[in-house]
Structures are given as C-alpha cells and as structure tokens.
Design a protein around this nucleic acid. Sequence first.
DNA 1: GATGAATGAGCCTTCATTCAT
DNA 2: GATGAATGAAGGCTCATTCAT
Lengths: 210, 210, 210, 210
Amino acid sequence: MVYRRTKKVDQRLESRLQAIMQAAREEFARNGFYGTSIKDIARRAGVAVGTIYLYLRNKEALFAALVNEAYEMVLERIAQARKKAVGGREKLKASMEAALEVLQEHRDLARVMLVQSPAGHPAVSEQLYDLLRRLARLVEEDVREEMERGALPPQDARLASLAFVGTFYQVVMGWLKDGYPTDLTAAGKDLIAYNLRGLGYPPEGEEEDG
Amino acid sequence: MVYRRTKKVDQRLESRLQAIMQAAREEFARNGFYGTSIKDIARRAGVAVGTIYLYLRNKEALFAALVNEAYEMVLERIAQARKKAVGGREKLKASMEAALEVLQEHRDLARVMLVQSPAGHPAVSEQLYDLLRRLARLVEEDVREEMERGALPPQDARLASLAFVGTFYQVVMGWLKDGYPTDLTAAGKDLIAYNLRGLGYPPEGEEEDG
Amino acid sequence: MVYRRTKKVDQRLESRLQAIMQAAREEFARNGFYGTSIKDIARRAGVAVGTIYLYLRNKEALFAALVNEAYEMVLERIAQARKKAVGGREKLKASMEAALEVLQEHRDLARVMLVQSPAGHPAVSEQLYDLLRRLARLVEEDVREEMERGALPPQDARLASLAFVGTFYQVVMGWLKDGYPTDLTAAGKDLIAYNLRGLGYPPEGEEEDG
Amino acid sequence: MVYRRTKKVDQRLESRLQAIMQAAREEFARNGFYGTSIKDIARRAGVAVGTIYLYLRNKEALFAALVNEAYEMVLERIAQARKKAVGGREKLKASMEAALEVLQEHRDLARVMLVQSPAGHPAVSEQLYDLLRRLARLVEEDVREEMERGALPPQDARLASLAFVGTFYQVVMGWLKDGYPTDLTAAGKDLIAYNLRGLGYPPEGEEEDG
DNA sequence: GATGAATGAGCCTTCATTCAT
DNA sequence: GATGAATGAAGGCTCATTCAT
C-alpha cells in the first residue's frame, strides 16, 4: 500500500473541486442552468467530464451547491453582523450592509443566485426566493419590535419588510446587470436611509439616539 | 368572388393564435421555459404541433411574444394612467397603481414574466429586467422633476428609482409565490406611501396639495 | 384538416413498426441486449433513432415486446394444439409438437428468447424461464392426470415435467447454436418418444389405444 | 538473500486473487455481467479497483475465469467419476451424479455459469453451451457404445444425448431459480431413471446386471 | 505491488423543428 | 391551412481502464 491520502493529494483533490466549482460558477453565471452543459464546465475546469461526477452527484447538485454556497454565505454574514448590532434600527442597517458586502465580494455567485437560479431548476429555483423570504422575515421581526417600542408607526409589517428587501434586490440587480450602482456598498447607505424613511422613522434619526 | 379572406376566416385564425397563446401562458407559467415542451402546449391548445409553427417562428418566439404581451400591457396601462395624472407625485402613484392592477388581472402572465422569464432563455430573460428598467426610468424622471421643483430633497434619483421599483417587484413576487399580500391593489396603497416617504416626501402629504 | 389517418398512412405506420421490430429481432438475436444499441437497430431499420421512441417506450420495452411476442406465440400455439388433443398422452405430444413448430418458424425470435433473453435485462430475463415454467406446469398436469388414470406409474410429477421440458429446451438450443438437429419438428418425434418412455409409458404404445 | 518470492508472499498473492474471484462470483451470480461493475467487485473484495487489473486482464477475463472454473470443475469431477464406472450405463449414471454433486456444492458458481453467463458477454456466453455440448458428447459416446452392444435400441444418439443433458440442465435451473427440487443430488436418482428409460433401457434394469 | 482519481468513449433518451400528406 | 410522424443533434451520465503516486 503506497498510494495514500497525503496532504499533497488532499490539496490536489480540494483544488480540483474548487476548479470545478469555479468553472461552474462562471458558466452558470453567464449562461444559466440550461444554457450550460457539463461538458462546458469540464472544459473550463480543465477536467474530464467524468471527473465532475467524482465530486458532485449530478448537474443539479452542482448548481444547487453553488446556490447554497451563496445562500449560506449571505445568511451567515448577516447573522454575524446582527450579533454586534443593538436595537431594531441598527439590526436593519447591519443586515443590509452585510448582505451587500458579501454580494459585492462574490459577483459570480451573486449572478448565479440572483439572475440564473430563478428558473434554474425546479428543485433549486425556490432557494433564491427562500433567501429573500428569510431576509424579509428578519426585517419583519425588527420592524415589529420597533413598532412595539413605538419607534415606528403602526403598519403592515410583513408588507413593509417585502418592500424593504425589494429595494435591495432591485439595486443588486442593477449592479449586476447595468453596472449601476458601481459600488454596491456605497449605495447601501442611501438605500438604508430610503428604507428607514419608508418605514416611518423620523428624518435625521434624532429621536433615537437623543 | 374567388377567395376572400372573410371575417370568419380571420376570426378563426385569430382564435387559433389565441388558443395557442393561452395554452402557452398556462404551461409556461406553471413549468417554465425548459419545463414546457411544444407538445405540451399543442396538446393543451387542442392543436397539432406543426400548427404552432404556422403562427410562431419557434419556441423562443412564442415565449418572447408572451413576455412581450405582458410587457406592453403593463407599459400601456401605465402610460394611460400617467396621462390623467398631474404632477410627479401623482404620476408616481398612478404608475404603480396601474402596474399592480394589470398584474392582478393577469396572474398567469405575471407568473410567466416575473417568475419564469428570468432564466427562461438568454434572448428573453432580458425582457423582464428591461421592463423594470423602464419603469425605473419613468420613476426617475418623476423624481428628478420633483427634485427640481424642490418637492423632494436632493438624492441619487436613479438609485431611488431602483429602490422604488424594487418594492413593487418584491411585493408582486410575494403575491405570486406566497399569496401575500392577498389583494395586490389594496397593498398598493401602503406601498406607495412607503415609497413616497422613502423618497423624502413629508409625512401626511399636507404641504404639496395644500 | 387535411392530414388524416388514411389506410395508407396506417399501413406505413404499421410497416414502420414492423421494420423496427424486425431490425431489433435481428440485432438482439445476434448481439444480445447489451451488445445492441438503439443506434444499431435504427440503422438496420432504416429509421432515425428518435423514430424508435415513437413506437416503443424505450430499449427495454422494445426487447420485452420481442420476448413477449415469442412467449405469446408459443403459448397460444400450444393452447390451440391442446384443444384438439384428447387424453394426457396426446396432449403432451401435441404441446411439444406445437412448440417446436413455432420456434422453427421464427428462428430469430427463438434466438432472442432462448439465447439472449436470459441475462438480457433484469425485467425481461425472467420471462424465458417463466415460459419454461408454464410449459412444465402443463406437462405436470397431464402427467398427474395419467398417473391417476393408472396410465403412468407413480413418480415425482414436477420433477418429471422439468425433465420433459428440459429435453426440448436443449434440443432447441442445439438447433439454434449447432444446427443440429437440422429439422426441429422432425426431431420432435424422437424426442416425444424419449419422454414418453422416460415418463414410464410402456413401449410401442400398445396398451393405451388397444 | 536479496529478494525471494517467499511462500508467504505467494500466499498473500494467491489469497488476494481468491478474494477477488470470490467477490466476483458473488456479484456476478446476483447481478449478472452487465449489472456488476468492477467497483462493486473491488468493494466486496476489499481491494482497490486497480488491484483487480493486476490479477486479471479485464472484466471479461474475470468473468471468463469464473465460468471456466465451473467448467473445469464439472468436467474434472465427471472424469473422475467415469474412471471408476464400468459400462455405458454406469458411466452415464456416474457422470450425471457427479455433475449434480459439484453444482450443489458450488451454488454461486452454478448461478454464474447457468443463469448469468448465457448473455453475459459474447466471448463468454459460449462457454456454458460448450460445457453442455461436451457433456452431451460424453453421453453420446456411452449411448453409441451401448447401442453397439445391443443394450440399447438403435436411435439418433446425438439427439438422445441432447435430451439427456437437457433434463439435467432444466432440473438444475429449477433448483437455482425456484428451489425445486430442494436436494439436487437426491433428485438425481429419479432423473437418471427417467433418462435410462428414455434411452430405451428395459425397466428394472434386470437384463444388464443379470 | 497497491491505490483510487482521472479519463472519455459511448449509451439512452428528449425534443425543437420540418415536411409529406 | 393543418397535421403529426420523422428527424437527429445534443445532453446527462456511466464505467472499464489507466497511471501517477
């Protein structure tokens, strides 16, 4: 027995998987689920078709892995950001800032998830919307909390949270498809302000901190 | 009288086309572009496969026609509404009310366009986003106008318009996928208020109309 | 509506199906289930690959249809022959004569069933053995009847029926693979005699009819 | 002493090969040639895929080795049995008894050979039939001998030998597939009697030994 | 010798599109 | 105009075999 799971071998394996994932990210990002063939991905990854199946069960699983990667990344980053924030208002801000940050850092992944996943594959297409749904629920909680505190006027919290999330979604799409805004995180500031006003916070934020 | 395209013939042709379009709407709405075969559509339309190709160049064109139908419908309804409205604020309100109204009336079409088109086919997937882009541009114009008038504070009008449109997009998606809000046009009121506040209109709208 | 299910069209369809079945018979007979590709069959049938799928659900179904064809044919022929025969002994003779006759008439089908089906496909492979089992059961019934009548000495009827059927199976295989016997039905006479003796009928058959 | 192929090394090699063969026997017996992958066999043998190729040229060779193993085993056992037997009749009995005995002792091998090999692989599928052919030839010799001696009536010896072998084949199949007869060697007695009668030996065996 | 990751030819099947009827 | 049988390119996936470690 000579061939063994050495560190070097493990690294090669890991880097192979990464090459495949990266190739898939690029291809799916550009051409969508149905517009991308396994052969395309293999070619780009510099790997034989069969090799892909050593790492991923099938095409759908590969796509799902990518979408899930983005999903987890966004949620985790938001969770971290929220831990540090205190109060509904700060949590709202922190959440959205964090989300924009991750997406900005992983543009291809963002494309796969936001642009390509919707009709990607029945089994996967729900995931994007599920993410948005979860984000909306976070927002909703914060909004309710603030309503109870009297910091926000009574309103349909669920509807407001949809609106809130929608502004971010649309701006990210603009960034992905039209290149506007150029800097996603910079735009985030304005966006947050827009939504805080929309929710009914008094302008200038004077009441909260005062 | 040798052969004249009579009214009756024309009507039959037209109704055939409509049957095909309707069947396509339903199938695409449910199963997406790749999940729907021409055969499926033909079967539902009560027509032979070949017949579809007498009316539409190919599958893509059929899908595009549907998306375009929604596209035109929404834009036209908005244009009409805007004609009657006076002033940026009213135009914004009128635009979005109109948009929600059409979508509410044509749920299948809305599904095709909003849910299925995004990754439907490279050539078509752009159209939804193009519509959103155009809506955003309308909003942007109104916002600029209001900014110039001093009715709105200075801001990144393009970004704001994305946010504005995003709220509607997300709420429509909620309606389509989760059934919330139940009544789209009813929710429109709150949504418009949210956005007017977000844009920076003073609360209660007392200064503008007074 | 012009294209209609005319007799001519129907005939073409039927002949297409027959061409495919025939091509499949020949290919499967020669190369077995796994050694035959759909492409092979299509080529031999002078038909496009996709056409085959218009007539048969899939490769397995095509193979199964062939095996079933042979199966039914053999059983039906035997059933007819048995109707005319009176008495266990005559029925035994008639059954086996009939079986040999059909096989002789349909050599390719016999090859598919006897030679290729056994490991053809899990779902189909049982069918040959099932046929042999059914034949054995027919024989067994006759043997029991004759035992009760006292025309045959007491014995393990089930075992005897296996032996009985086995002789025919092996001879058919010899005919298919070695070309011996040359004439299957001619050999049938000797074979029947062999088995009647084996079962314990007195030689010359003098007691029964006398 | 630089490097010597020690007994221990040899044993390890031999046992590896045996492990592979055994795993192959079990897998092929259960799932047939095409239903068994090299990986399946490697896994069951507790060996790496590549290792198999150190011992066997390829999958076909592995299958062939198995079938051949059965082949040789049966023939050798028969040869031994025949050595001790005197006279055609005794040789016939001894041959078949021996055959049933080996098969009963090696059920998996029997399955591979009788059930799975027929359509296993073109190159291998012949082997089973070849064995049956050789058995038939042995029988044929004995029958001719007995015909010349006058112990058996004139008949088509080749055909009779096929019948003879066929009875055994079918009974073994019954044992393998339906579990009937339960005890193969016990059933052998009846089977031999059936065939001796079939060949034309007078009942009770009174003339021969008398 | 032993390992198992890598390869890629080849297979079955689907389905948009065409065209003889 | 209308039909639907026919086409065949294209795609996902498997698995026997190889070879660097």
